[in-house]
Write a protein that binds this DNA or RNA. Structure first.
Lengths: 131, 131
DNA sequence: GTAGGTTCTAGAGTCGGCTCTAGGTCAAAC
DNA sequence: GTTTGACCTAGAGCCGACTCTAGAACCTAC
């Protein structure tokens, strides 16, 4: 059911084997990956799930240092839930802020697009959903 | 009315003087900044406005090379509006994609936040907007 | 006239986040 | 038994986007 090679995990997660080793060195894994008889990494389902979380945290712009910090808290076990919550809430706030920023930029871009469409006589003036 | 030093522009835009010079070297300015008698940069309102656009494009994740490309099109003058539109639309699409990605990540984070709030007995269970 | 602040150029340095290389081990297929 | 391919470590290299440094010119105020 479990016991994946680094190559399989790479395929499954979309990360490269290089990146997987790099993330491990950086301390992003909840627990050190188990090794087989010959020293090769053997990933469990839990590792893959955790990597999934890391990937989403990264994708939402959390720096590796913060992910490491969160990982360390999880690794330390029960009793620090408040701290974990703080890390997550802070990040949540950052993501929301970032989304608002993107939304603002998008408005400028959309304006410019409209201007150029107008200039090129491309503007589709069919009212679609004017309330 | 106009004629700003690099320091004033830095203050006004929030960019550092280093970054302003760097952006100019990188060809991000619509036209080369004018120079005063002693070779110092003298920015016009137009330059500041253009920098504002660059800042928003950067803030929305457009790489410098793309901003340069767009700038070159604008600098080249009329006749390439279709190309400018293409650059903008492509970026618009990227921003939208990014926002959707962030939104997906946000859901995970928000779930985790809720879980920890629950564990800590902090959850505000007042139903607010249950449809 | 001189001290302090701003600006200039060219080029070096930094930082985050990968990405790749070299040199080696190991297992399975031929 | 050797070739192929996945894997190992340690460490170097790369890329984008700044950020800073050195050494010199200039401006203003005292």
């Amino acid at each position: 059911m479990s016991g994946l090679s680094i190559g399989q995990v790479a395929e499954r997660t979309g990360l490269s084997v290089h990146t997987l080793r790099f993330y491990e060195r950086e301390g992003l894994l909840a627990q050190p990956v188990q090794r087989g008889t010959t020293g090769r990494r053997v990933y469990g389902e839990g590792d893959v799930d955790w990597l999934g979380v890391c990937i989403r945290l990264r994708a939402s712009g959390m720096p590796l240092t913060d992910i490491r910090r969160y990982t360390e808290l999880v690794r330390a076990g029960r009793g620090n839930e408040a701290e974990r919550l703080e890390v997550l809430r802070e990040h949540q706030e950052r993501v929301l802020t970032r989304m608002r920023e993107l939304d603002g930029c998008l408005k400028l871009i959309t304006n410019k697009v409209a201007v150029y469409e107008g200039r090129l006589g491309l503007r589709d003036d069919t009212p679609e959903c004017t309330p």
